[in-house]
């Protein structure tokens, strides 16, 4: 499951949304407003969680325990999505959970993206032994069972937000390195790069000024799709008790809490999961669309 994403990224899926006929494509583009709205909403709620959430996420109210959502018998409008076994408001916890999920996604992709891009640039431009070394390391990283490695780290260092980001960033750089290296290989043989070299540009300047700007687009596409993947992995690890430690509200841990009450209180697991699916689905849709829009090679396929 979450150990995926390697093969589902930019390069394999060239023929995705881009080869729909014109009318469907136009309709698909107009539909993009929905995922964008969802992302803006969750992002905004997450940012302003302290103001936007009706209750503090960890406020315990034993009198209001296990309330169902408002439309079911016994539910109250004051707790629209119900409460958990400690009387904590599900709505408020989902809103605070949005902050954690999105922050984890962005931070891990930033860590992995920066390291991976640098290594990919070096590997692709300088070639030789350093290329072999970096690519062997990349292969090793890509065949690691990520969830299990993250469990290992959680046991050794204890679960924490920082450790989670480090582990995810550490396994993710390989995907960026591989993409960037491939791109550098195609660009560095171009004439403008050769001219820059003749003009006396240093390798650093060539990479920064002449090659990197051409790589930004596929990089943005990969990064977007990876954010969705990281959010799922983070939730899976929190579900297993190896992600973000309680009482910080995280969607994965909320779903885990609800698992033991599945026969009596379905809403405990259901709503955090809906939030998770909505966000990840929106990110994936956005990523697919960005690929069509930003990556001229796939755009030309139509």
């Amino acid at each position: 499951m979450a150990d995926a994403g390697i093969t589902l990224t930019a390069d394999t899926d060239v023929a995705a949304a881009s080869d729909l006929p014109g009318s469907l494509r136009a309709r698909a583009r107009r539909l993009l407003i929905v995922p964008l709205l969802i992302l803006v909403t969750f992002g905004g709620l997450g940012l302003l969680a302290d103001v936007a959430a009706p209750y503090p996420p960890n406020q315990i109210a034993l009198r209001a325990r296990m309330l169902p959502p408002f439309w079911q018998e016994g539910g109250r409008l004051a707790h629209p999505l119900g409460t958990d076994r400690l009387g904590r408001d599900i709505t408020s916890r989902i809103i605070h959970g949005a902050r954690v999920s999105i922050a984890a996604g962005l931070a891990a992709v930033a860590v992995g993206g920066v390291i991976g891009t640098l290594l990919g640039l070096i590997s692709g431009y300088f070639g030789r032994w350093i290329d072999t070394l970096i690519m062997r390391a990349t292969d090793a990283m890509l065949s690691l069972p990520i969830i299990l490695i993250a469990l290992l780290f959680a046991v050794v260092f204890g679960p924490s937000f920082r450790n989670l980001i480090l582990v995810l960033g550490l396994v993710m750089w390989a995907r960026f390195a591989r993409l960037v290296r491939g791109e550098v290989l195609t660009w560095k043989e171009r004439e403008f790069v050769a001219l820059a070299r003749v003009a006396g540009c240093s390798p650093f300047r060539i990479l920064q000024r002449h090659i990197f700007p051409n790589i930004v687009n596929p990089l943005v596409v990969l990064a977007t799709l990876q954010v969705g993947w990281v959010i799922i992995v983070e939730a899976s690890l929190s579900f297993l008790g190896a992600g973000i430690p309680p009482p910080t509200p995280s969607w994965g841990a909320m779903i885990a809490d609800g698992r033991s009450h599945i026969t009596t209180a379905w809403w405990l697991s259901f709503f955090p999961g809906v939030a998770l699916v909505l966000v990840v689905l929106s990110i994936n849709l956005l990523g697919d669309w960005l690929r069509d829009f930003l990556d001229p090679r796939t755009r030309n396929l139509t």
Binding site: G228, I232, S236, G252, I255, G258, I262, V277
Partner: peptide, 22 residues
């Protein structure tokens, strides 16, 4: 394919249990 990629297994499993088993 999009849903298969966006729905986490643990939540799908819980929802399936609650529908088909419970």
């Amino acid at each position: 394919a999009l849903f298969g990629q966006s729905v986490p297994t643990f939540w799908a499993g819980i929802v399936l249990i609650s529908i088909f088993a419970v």
